[in-house]
Design a protein around this nucleic acid. Structure first.
Lengths: 333, 333
DNA sequence: TCCTCCTACGTCAACGTTGACGTAACCTGC
DNA sequence: GCAGGTTACGTCAACGTTGACGTAGGAGGA
């Protein structure tokens, strides 16, 4: 900046004025400064700028999801990024791997870089670190899972209602033995979806068979194993409700291996690519991921801009996408 | 920091020493400062720190890919992120949408935030903005596509060789009419894969039929349309080589719709989730995405650490994954 | 005893930028 | 012709931190 000022024969303050399009610089000086900046390849230092500016904004937000290589997470990141770009804001992204310690460390890193706000998918268990950061005044929005503490916005989907509807659809087709396969029980989403499953059974007048419930299936491999034991039961389920992405994939694999995929009904929570290309297509509860991301971003930006209205828990509706696997009737036996 | 210093009754410089674990602070003072920092919830300001420090590192790198919601891109991001975390570095991520203007703007944004280096998937066409940034001294590594200018590291895969091998495998099965469906011709990867296709044909002693080559298929819809026209030819191809992710999906859709998926061979470049769950499983050329990401990250960090050895073009080998669709023989006619 | 060296601090300025404020020149209206 | 206002600059200090350097006090050696 000093070099630019020297070359244009003005003070650094005038360079600052030109760079920020502030009034108080004559047209001819503006031109001189612009030319000097161009010829020197000058790039303003945003970090120094935000250090001095009164609003102290870094025009950067943090995104802390579980695993950025997971399609759900990356779609969400992309949605947040799009909305952020719209505001001239960049995104610092990190994967917490659902590890509280790691999440906490990353949060400190983000905080040290003075992000204006954060969008977080809370790791399971205690949310002390999140709460602490929130109480320091950092604008924060939780996605996918609500906070266990107060005063914080969050965006989730219709986990319980959509799960109930899925189970009701299976029951309406005549299924009486509907299995539930869920992710880690510590996850709020898993709990909600399980509650929805229970509500669905109750509403359809079906009794819960405990042995048809398998949880803590973290990853497709565990889901495969669980599906196998379910199918080996004396009275195996005629329909499966798989409450997460990878669980659905694991279950599908086993159904195919045993050639049961045309006779056993399957509804999964979370859509995934190519679900429509399989035979049969996989019926899923599809979350509105871009909608969730957009809403979350809007909330952080509103808070960053000083919105002090009461915290919001936004619920973005999911939809049942019928593709075949969820429309299979129980085979007569 | 001033508050911490006041509370611990020391100078800010001593606080700095304690925070950075530098010598020159007695054990009892260290304890006092730590306690003060804790009780005030002090967080060092990394941007101010990097402004003053001599190395001027921000401990942040930029990642500029085409679309962070694309599985290839997000897997790559994750790999870079993991390596970065290992160095205590955070990642600023952006999607360029293969738009040169947008890419250039994002690059300026990254530069203004003083990232220590960038990993870029170059947008098609001129790379002036990239070259300019590179010449300003920013450590830079290109992934997926090489630079059109010199002095810059890059990491790609065996586009040409793997494409040739795929075509040779099809030829060995007896196919004589092998179609090529490719992405935008401006993309280096498309060109390389097309060259590999030509080499494969030549090496197998097959003659090129121009009408079997379709390029500029940006997205699954265009790929679908192109596949339809190919199959409507008087002498349709008996095998397809689809040179990109979404192109493969588009082609698959059409083959299925016409019930040709068991009789027409298909090999796609780029793996995708569930490719193994389809009937038949889709034979693909699989890139080592984590390997590419890791290598790219290693290269930037080496450059950031002052490595001035000649620029490297690392080639991470891809592998043919046989799943069925690429092993279909031409039907007798 | 005195000089040297080390340790544990403190002081000051600077990183690149901008807010607050100052000032000289010009305009406007009567 | 002059008060009052506006425009186009410049000067200075400060944002939070750390490098360079200073200093007081104690340990150690001749």
């Amino acid at each position: 900046m000093r070099d630019v000022a020297a070359l244009a024969k003005v003070s650094t303050k005038t360079v600052s004025r030109v760079i920020n399009d502030l009034p108080g610089a004559g047209p001819e000086v503006v031109e001189r400064v612009r030319a000097a900046a161009r010829s020197l390849g000058y790039r303003p230092n945003l970090t120094a700028s935000s250090l001095r500016r009164s609003d102290r904004r870094s025009a950067t937000i943090g995104v802390l999801f579980e695993d950025l290589s997971n399609p759900f997470d990356s779609a969400l990141l992309r949605a947040v990024e799009d909305r952020a770009r719209h505001n001239g804001v960049l995104v610092l992204a990190g994967s917490s791997e659902d590890d509280r310690t790691l999440q906490s460390e990353l949060l400190v890193s983000l905080s040290a870089r003075r992000v204006d706000g954060v969008v977080v998918m809370a790791a399971g268990g205690h949310q002390d670190a999140l709460q602490q950061e929130r109480e320091r005044g950092t604008p924060m929005v939780l996605v996918d899972r609500p906070p266990t503490f107060g005063g914080t916005d969050c965006v989730t989907t219709t986990n319980r209602d959509s799960s109930r509807d899925a189970v009701l659809q299976l029951a309406a087709l005549g299924h009486r033995d509907i299995a539930f396969l869920g992710d880690r029980r510590t996850l709020w989403t898993s709990q909600e979806r399980y509650t929805g499953y229970l509500e669905g059974l109750a509403q359809a007048g079906l009794t819960l068979r405990d042995e048809l419930v398998r949880t803590d299936l973290h990853g497709a491999d565990l889901a495969e194993a669980a599906t196998k034991t379910l199918l080996d039961l004396d009275r195996p389920p005629t329909a499966l409700f798989t409450a997460q992405n990878l669980v659905t994939v694991g279950a599908m694999r086993v159904l195919r291996a045993r050639d049961l995929h045309r006779s056993t009904a399957l509804i999964g929570f979370d859509d995934f690519p190519l679900a429509d290309m399989l035979e049969p297509g996989i019926t899923v509860v599809r979350q509105d991921v871009p909608g969730i991301g957009r809403k979350a971003a809007e909330l952080v930006f509103a808070r960053i801009d000083g919105d002090t209205s009461p915290p919001v828990h936004a619920v973005v509706p999911a939809a049942l996408v019928r593709r075949g696997s969820g429309e299979i009737r129980p085979s007569a036996h």
